[in-house]
Amino acid sequence: MIDQIQKDMLKAVADLDSLPVGAYNIRADGQSAARNTTANIDIVTKTDKPGIDIIIRPGTKKESVHIPVVISQSGLKECVYNDFFVGEDCDVVIIAGCGIHNCGAGDSQHDGIHSFFVGKNSKVRYIEKHYGDGDGAGKRVMNPESVVELAEGAEMQMETTQIGGVDDTLRKTTARLAAGAKLIIREALLTEGDQRADTDFTVTLDGEGASADVVSRTVAKGRSTQHYTSRVIGNAPCTGHTECDSIIMDQAKVTAVPELTANDLDASLIHEAAIGKIAGEQLVKLMTLGLTEQEAEEQIISGFLR
């Protein structure tokens, strides 16, 4: 059911050599290719639109869900809705990821809308990798959207990575946090050639003691363009921190737009943004260790995006 190209993509986006342990749903070329549920994690196909509901029972701990998507059919366009209902007092890991291999002329596109409803005092770690390859003229387009709702005391850590190969992407994340909830986002993004990436974060801190820490590290090579927007809205005594740190190379263009809104006297919000080329002294240092300039550059970038 899954061919070699799709297997390679699965390895790239989800580190999977074989079927994963625990719950999973593998989507290949617009179809569900494999699925497994556990006593605590159910996966149900939506009836009103494409996608699945992932239902995690209250109290589920140390379990994981893999939901990778691979596309190897040129010209395939899909929009998928995946909703995660995480009960109270859970501690789970969700591994998503999308790989597009396009060696044809038509654009291939995956729009994934992930909604997370995380119950009280639950902890979720969400890992998402996006990857594209194939030498066709058709573009590889991914528009991931994440909607996060964290109940009181819930915690979510999102680690999202897109290292090359995706021609066009709009990465949109909106989050709403109740009292004591905590959201950590770590984004790593690399664009090259004529690629374009737009990242848009909106985090609303509604409850007392809510906190958000959003850090995006990006590298823009070639003639690629990146546009980064982060909005943090503090409606209660809360803390919010966003950071956009970019390395710019060649003829690339990077824009960072921070927007902080405090609607409460005790909302403490910080934004940091830095855009700059690789420091010459960093290259020199690594060259004194015996690396060529090219190798030094690669080390600096891979460390920066780790």
Partner: peptide, 28 residues
């Protein structure tokens, strides 16, 4: 160049060490 001399056995400790975001001590 610097690389070629490094490979021939010259090491250099900077007076002002260079900082790297993301690279760890073990990497260097």
């Amino acid at each position: 160049n610097i690389t070629e001399r490094a490979r021939r056995g010259i090491s250099y400790a900077f007076q002002q060490p260079v900082r790297f975001k993301g690279l760890r001590v073990r990497d260097l």
